[in-house]
Amino acid sequence: MDNFEFHKPTSIDDAIKAVDGKDEPKFLAGGQSLIPVMKLDMAQPSDLVSLAGVATLKEIKEDGDTLVIGAMATHATVAESDAVTKAIPSIASMAGHIGDAQVRNRGTIGGSVAHADPAADYPAALVALNATVKTHKREIAAEDFFTELFETALEEGELITAIHFKKPKRSWYEKFQSPASKYAIAGVCVAEYDDGVRVAITGAGNKVFRHAGMEKALSGNFDPSALDGVDVDAGELRTDVEASAEYRAHLVKVMAKRAVKNAR
C-alpha cells in the first residue's frame, strides 16, 4: 500500500476543505471496502480524509414521514437503533445481516452507498424506500444515484451527509447471501406506499434496479401469490462464480415472495 496524507477534520466544512485541490483525495468512513481495495493497490489515494471525527454525520432521527440516517451511522448502530426499528424495521434487519459483526461495527451506510457494490444490500433499500441521498451541496434521488457497476452520481470531492428514507406502510428485505462474504447473490426489497408498491433488486444485475412487473402485480394485491405469474427475465442478470443468470432469476422471485410475506 502506498503512503498518503491522513486528515481528521471535525466538521463537514473542514472535510470539504481537506479534499479541495488534492491530487487523488478520498474520504475514509468505516474502511471496510476502501482499506481492502487499497491493500490490493486498486486505489492509491494521495490524501485520506477520515470522517470519524465529524459527529453530525452520525445522527439518526425521524422527521415527519422521513427517516434520516447520517452517512457515518455504522451498520451495527442502525441494526440496534430504536428509531430505525420503529420507523422502518426492514432497514434495521437489513443492516443486522450485512457481512459479519466486525464489518458491522466499522462499516457505514454512507460508505456502502458511495462504494455502490452491485451486490451490496443498502442500494435495494434506498431505491425501494424512495430515498434521497443528501450531499454537502445537493439532493439526489436514489434511482438517479446508482448509475453503473461501482459508479454513482457523486462528483469528485462530494460528501454524502445523510440518507433520507420515506416511511412506507410496510416493507421488508430478503437476500440469498454468499456463504463466504454475505453479500447478496440476489436481494429484494419491497415497500408498500399509499400510491403503490416499489420493488428493488440488488446482487442480481450490474446495479440495483426496479421491477415493473412485480410492482404492478403487488400494487393490485400485496400477497406472495400475486408474483406467481410474473416473469423475471434472466437476460438482464449476471452470471458469475456464485450463480448463473437463470438461477438468479429464480432466486429473485423467491426472495421477493419472502419479503412480501414478512413485510411489516
Partner: peptide, 13 residues
C-alpha cells in the same frame, strides 16, 4: 470497546 478487524483499520484511526 468494539471488536474490529485490525487488518482493515489504520493505526492512525
Amino acid at each position: 470497546g468494539q471488536s474490529v478487524k485490525s487488518c482493515s483499520m489504520l493505526a492512525v484511526e
